[in-house]
């Protein structure tokens, strides 16, 4: 019976059987199931991940001891700024108060956020660190936990640096902010709740740019026909109108 099978097949099947048996034994007997169990690997990865050290304690933990600063911070302009954004990771400090978190004192630190940069969103308070009270520490005028302008700013550019910057190179450079915006005094103290006015109608620009205007140095248009039903600032950016 066995002799009818060619010799080659018999020999190869022995080899095959040995290989299969070795693999099967290795797989099912020798190797611990945990080495092959993907679920086990995943669980232990999650465990390891969860056990990692925390560096940043989180603002609510800070508030538990530093109620005064936290209270101030919560209502001021820095309300969105978490304690550890400036003071650095403070988890170690929560466990051993003798380990002090950092306290940035140099101007460079505030400038990370408040230095003027054209890529920053309009309206974000920015200064030019070279021109803005050089060599003075920021904290002498601004309390970092509740930053407000130390005195009512004289110039609009103190806060609206981006617009001011753009305006200096525009044909409107010599037109003062208050020529177009009337600014309530309170705007300088609570800038977001009391806003300056903005021009409402085409006629406002027409004072200089309408054909009939007496102003010599402004480009003239025919107000009733120019631009149809659109407002002037739909196409022209008033702080920096394109040169013609």
């Amino acid at each position: 019976m066995l002799n009818k099978i060619p010799e080659q097949i018999r020999r190869l099947s022995v080899v095959l059987a040995v290989v299969i048996a070795a693999v099967a034994i290795a797989r099912y007997v020798v190797l611990p199931s945990s080495l092959i169990d993907t679920r086990f690997h995943r669980e232990s990865t999650v465990q390891r991940e969860v056990a990692k050290n925390i560096q940043f304690a989180g603002a609510s933990v800070c508030a538990a001891c530093h109620a005064e600063q936290a209270g101030k911070n919560r209502v001021g302009y820095h309300k969105t700024v978490s304690c550890e954004a400036c003071h650095g990771p403070a988890r170690a400090h929560t466990e051993d108060p003798s380990i002090k978190p950092t306290k940035p004192k140099t101007r460079e630190f505030c400038v990370f956020c408040h230095g003027y940069d054209a890529s920053r969103p309009t309206g974000f308070p920015q200064i030019n660190p070279v021109l803005h009270n050089p060599l003075k520490s920021c904290a002498t005028c601004h309390n970092p936990h509740d930053p407000v302008p130390p005195e009512v700013p004289r110039e609009c550019s103190a806060c609206h640096a981006q617009i001011a910057n753009i305006k200096t190179v525009s044909p409107h450079a010599l037109i003062g902010c208050t020529s177009c915006h009337s600014v309530p005094a309170k705007h300088k103290v609570t800038p977001r709740s009391v806003r300056p006015t903005k021009p409402q109608a085409r006629d406002f620009c027409g004072q200089c740019h309408a054909k009939e205007s007496e102003r010599k140095d402004a480009p003239k248009i025919d107000l009733p026909t120019h631009g149809g039903r659109f407002l002037c600032w739909d196409c022209h950016y008033p702080h920096r109108p394109e040169r013609i």
Binding site: E49, Q55, F56
Partner: peptide, 21 residues
């Protein structure tokens, strides 16, 4: 990892915690 070790404990990821805006 979205700071997995933080978020499962109710904390924010570190980048979100410190983002000032």
């Amino acid at each position: 990892t979205f700071c997995y070790h933080r978020i499962v404990k109710g904390l924010l990821p570190a980048c979100v915690e410190v983002c000032p805006t």
